[in-house]
Amino acid sequence: MRSLPELLEGVPITLLLTFCAISAGFALGLLLALGRVYGKKGISYSCIAYLEIFRGTPLLVQLFIIYYGLPNIGIIFSPLLAALLGLSLNSAAYQAEYLRGSIQAIPANQMIAGRTLGMTRFQSIRTIILPQALRISIPAWSNELIYLLKYTSIVVYIQVRDLTFQAKDIAAQSSRYLETFLVVALIYLLFTILFSEIVDRVEKRVRIPGVGLSPRIVKRNMKIPFKT
């Protein structure tokens, strides 16, 4: 337990990776979802190709390509940057799929009503479709946040000194594997509970009657890690 401060040094890196990847992944994911749903054929297919590639290959392989592979053609990233890039690009693909589902869950008539008022397509998407779609996608997004927090631990393989990396070091030095990794597991658990609680509150705060999936459907469709 004397090594706790050393262990905690990894926490900021883990959180940094999580927040950057979830945000960058969201921005890119939103573009991909919009491109896939509303884009012309070429754009739509490019988005689909992106999604297939990033969801169809292991995250670890993607990280290896970025960190170990790209230097072969002269593109070199620091471990942290490679991790950020890999996690963001990967999360974007998943978030795009959640968002696409939400966008397509909005009845087509909502867009038609917007166009009938004289809104452009873009205006209708921005002011009518997205405010509803984003609300609907919060539960899925909450899952993604929690998965991402846990998946960041994979970056130990490209030498990023995150929480898991510190634990591995400390455990090896002290041979106290069980104790160390149990503490690490507990730290991850605390953060996942905290995050899902925060997102839950945000969801309740922005909830609008009549917008969103009924709680029953949410429970059936989403694997929510804790809470039954």
Partner: peptide
């Protein structure tokens, strides 16, 4: 058409109010 549609109100059978 976006200019024109401002001048043509439309009331739908199933309302189509903006839910949010």
């Amino acid at each position: 058409l976006n200019r024109i549609r401002q001048k043509i109100g439309f009331v739908f059978q199933d309302f189509n109010l903006f839910n949010h």
